[in-house]
Every structure is written in structure tokens, then in C-alpha cells.
Amino acid sequence: MKVVVDMNKCQDHGQCVFAAPDVFSFDDAGRLAYVPDPDDALRDEVEEAADVCPLQAIRIEG
């Protein structure tokens, strides 16, 4: 599974960090960081993160 976040859209709401903390986190500067190729076992929580992104900036491929 491949995760792509449109960082031009992202506004640091952090909803994805709550939904899928194994994949999304804030770095020390407060910017979103994420695992671009998470294990398929995490698909449910990544899909939830994509659904609850206020800017709909998270895309899942494959």
C-alpha cells in the first residue's frame, strides 16, 4: 500500500495522527510526517485517516 499526502493541501489538523498514529505523526517542527509505504495490516486505520482528513489530502494507492 502506498500513501500520498498532498502537502500543499495539508493544514496540520492532526486528524490522521489520531486515526493512524503508526503511519502519521508530527515532527519536532509541527509538520506532518508519514510512512509512505505502510504495511497492509494497517490498511483499515490508513483508510480511516484518509476519510477524516478535513482537507481530503490523503490518497491511498494499491
Binding site: 493544514q11 496540520d12 492532526g14 495522527v17 489520531f18 508530527f26 509541527g30
Partner: peptide, 12 residues
């Protein structure tokens, strides 16, 4: 500001 969520997320 925009980083407000960062503080809140620490309480997840």
C-alpha cells in the same frame, strides 16, 4: 495557530 493540533495530539 496551525500547530495547536500538535499540542492536543500529545493527549491521544
Amino acid at each position: 495557530g496551525r500547530t495547536a493540533a500538535l499540542d492536543a495530539a500529545r493527549y491521544r
